[in-house]
């Protein structure tokens, strides 16, 4: 999921639109697009899956890379707690999007 969809999102939002390589879509169009329940469901799934993808892999990067397995509880809480908080923020923003 992350490998399939994030590169194109990041290329357009983070580089092509701000630099002006491609004309950015207008506010009205994007607002209407995000208001659609289908888009909101997609964005929520994207946030949820990406955050847990980060939490799981970052946890093992810290274990293997820095060998700090003795801080297991702190890392576990930080990673999965962060992913849960981020998912809750995404849910709040998308649920209340007007």
């Amino acid at each position: 999921m992350a490998a399939l969809v994030i590169p194109v999102h990041l290329f357009l939002l983070g580089l092509a639109f701000p630099v002006g390589w491609i004309a950015a879509p207008g506010y009205e169009y994007l607002h209407a697009l995000v208001r659609s329940p289908l888009t909101r469901t997609y964005l929520f799934a994207l946030c949820f899956l990406s955050l847990f993808h980060w939490a799981h892999r970052f946890r093992y990067t810290l274990y293997d890379g820095l060998q700090i397995k003795h801080l297991n509880e702190v890392i576990f809480t930080g990673c999965y707690g962060g992913a849960i908080c981020g998912t809750a923020v995404a849910g709040y923003l998308l649920w209340n999007f007007r």
Partner: peptide, 21 residues
């Protein structure tokens, strides 16, 4: 493995965009 941090950054960017919209 570090690339996962940038995936989290992308979510932050996306949430900021949704909030601004």
């Amino acid at each position: 493995e570090i690339s996962s941090v940038f995936i989290a950054w992308f979510v932050v960017l996306l949430l900021l965009q949704i909030r601004a919209l």
